[in-house]
Write a protein that binds this DNA or RNA. Structure first.
Lengths: 233, 233
DNA sequence: GTCTATAGTGGGATAGAC
DNA sequence: GTCTATCCCACTATAGAC
């Protein structure tokens, strides 16, 4: 048996490649990241990616699958917990929003496990036009989105479902930028010093809930439901 | 003189290249879009890009400059108009938000002039890691962001400036997704049929204002200013 | 499972005729 | 200002030795 200090085991090589790829994809994007960059950063051979993953595209998919499955597992677990506590009653919107977006930010705060890196990548990828990655995201997300939307529909029975759908979409955008975070912010505001990550979650939550519960368009007075007929149930 | 039907004039070739590049960048991203794709779509020769712009990177910059200058010109004009009407008094947040984000959505609705295509590209590019494009965006945006932030600081004197900065950032995210729009939405919600663009603006505005005016984090009760000390002025 | 060497492809850019 | 032909380079992927 060889000393494990010099060369790590095979499975570790695989993980190092995934970590390196993840970081480089964030930094440079998918296309601009080359196999040579990945393998050199992972301290592996140029042929290792093809050996372990088969192709660059397959590697990209693995980078996502590794974290996304876990993220949505946690999200659904958080939702389950809330629903168990509520015992059949509709949840408060704030609980639902926290289970979905709070879990994501939690994972983004977990720098030790590459959470931050990945969440930035994920946020960016939604709006990116990369065919097979989007297809893949859609599949991985289907179940979670389904359940969270259903919870929101129950929580806000007076709000038209399409309005909720759009607001969910807007919230995703806000979250994406929240995680992309300081980098993008400094782009137009150098004088920015309070980037404390532990304050990000409450900041984002206030904003999201304010947006989610805002008066419907075409209604001047909050609380009063004029047009915008409630959907059934 | 030649018949102008067969081959368009030189300046038109330049514009066709810009249009083609813009559309292809949205569809495939910067890296994945090749010179050959651009020139063939623009019905121009492969050498034309280098003749007119010097390089692919310079072309990318031109694609942005062409529309961004106009967008921010309109935004500042809208702000000027509001400030003239207010005659020295602080503006209502809704007016400021509309001047900034409404103008962008207006431009996005202007499909005839490639507005929609460009706004999608712009929204995506914020979070993209393309070095020289970001640098460039920062410069083009500096003046407009400066003035709009100042207006928001005046409009919301009790809200800490950093909070406003973050919320402005979140609003940018929501807008970006709003414009990316249906494409991304359908990714996780097939049953989505009300994509009427004329309804997008009021939808987004309600959401943004709800978020902007949400109670500050750490304050349970809206309207009551406990912690989160007002910044000076 | 790791490596070197290389095949094969497609990119951006340009020289030079028209 | 437009075009063809081509150069040169960097990339992914693989064959085959170890």
């Amino acid at each position: 048996m060889r000393a494990p200090t010099e060369r790590q085991s095979a499975s570790e090589t695989r993980d190092r490649i995934l970590d390196a790829a993840e970081a480089l994809f964030v930094e440079h994007g998918f296309e601009a990241t080359t196999m040579r960059m990945i393998t050199s950063r992972a301290d592996a051979n140029i042929a290792a990616v093809n050996y372990h993953f088969g192709s660059k595209d397959a590697l990209i998919q693995e980078v996502f699958k590794r974290r996304l499955t876990e993220l949505n597992r946690r999200r659904l677990a958080a939702l389950d917990r809330q629903e168990a506590e509520a015992g059949g009653a509709p949840l408060k919107p704030s609980r639902i929003v926290e289970a979905f977006f709070g879990t994501a930010l939690e994972m983004a705060a977990d720098t030790a496990h590459g959470g931050h890196t990945f969440m930035r990548l994920l946020g960016r990828t939604y709006t990116e036009p990369n065919g097979f990655v989007r297809q893949f995201l859609a599949e991985e997300y289907a179940e979670a989105v389904e359940r969270f939307l259903a919870a929101l529909y129950r929580a806000l029975p007076d709000v038209p479902r399409e309005e909720i759908l759009w607001r969910f979409h807007f919230m995703m955008g806000a979250m994406s930028y929240a995680i992309a975070g300081t980098d993008a912010l400094q782009l137009f505001a150098g004088k920015f010093d309070d980037a404390a990550p532990e304050r990000l979650l409450p900041r984002l939550m206030s904003f999201l809930l304010g947006g989610l519960r805002a008066p419907l368009p075409g209604q001047g007075v909050p609380g009063e439901n004029g047009r915008g007929a409630p959907t059934r149930q």
